[in-house]
Amino acid sequence: MLNELKSNLGNVMRAYQAEGKQIPDDLWYQGCLIFKMEEAVKEGDEEMLLFLMNELVGGDDTAFTA
């Protein structure tokens, strides 16, 4: 799942660059969240992973629960 998210985000960022446009800050933020999600998975930190997933989908803390 995370690899697919990274791939899709990378495609969008490359499309902005190909058009000579600046990459929006929210896309950089999403990239940071995905990176931190990978770290949470490696550390087995389910609570952090759920928090980051909620942030990625808009910050509603009821979207994903344990």
Rank of each mutant, 00 (worst) to 15 (best):
M48L: 14
A15P: 03
R14S: 15
K6W: 06
L9A: 11
M53V: 03
F64W: 02
E43R: 09
E43C: 03
W28R: 09
G59N: 02
E46K: 05
G59S: 08
G31E: 02
V12Q: 10
D60Y: 03
E19K: 15
Y16M: 10
F35K: 00
K21V: 10
F51L: 10
A40T: 01
L52Q: 04
F35T: 08
E47C: 01
K6T: 05
N3L: 13
A18W: 06
D45E: 03
E39G: 11
L52I: 07
A18M: 13
M53I: 04
L52G: 02
G20D: 08
G44Y: 00
E46D: 11
N11M: 12
A40R: 01
E46C: 00
D25L: 13
E43V: 03
T65V: 14
R14F: 08
N3M: 10
G58S: 07
G44V: 06
Q22T: 15
L27I: 13
Y29K: 14
Y16G: 14
M53L: 13
G31Y: 07
M37N: 03
G58F: 01
K42T: 07
R14D: 14
G59M: 06
K36R: 03
D25W: 06
L56Y: 12
N11I: 05
E46P: 00
M48R: 12
K42R: 12
G10I: 12
L50E: 04
M13H: 10
V57I: 04
L2T: 03
G31W: 05
E55Y: 01
G44E: 03
L5S: 09
K21C: 08
K42E: 10
D25C: 02
E19T: 11
Q30W: 00
K6G: 01
L50Y: 09
F35W: 00
I34P: 02
A18L: 10
M37S: 04
T65D: 02
E38N: 08
E19G: 11
D61C: 02
L52N: 01
M37E: 11
K36E: 14
T62M: 10
N8R: 15
D61M: 12
E4S: 13
Y16N: 08
D45Q: 00
V57M: 06
L2E: 08
F35G: 02
A18F: 07
V57R: 04
M1H: 09
V57N: 04
G59R: 02
Q22K: 14
Q30D: 07
G20E: 09
G31A: 07
A63T: 13
G20T: 10
L49N: 03
V57T: 10
D25K: 14
P24E: 14
T62E: 15
G44M: 01
E43W: 04
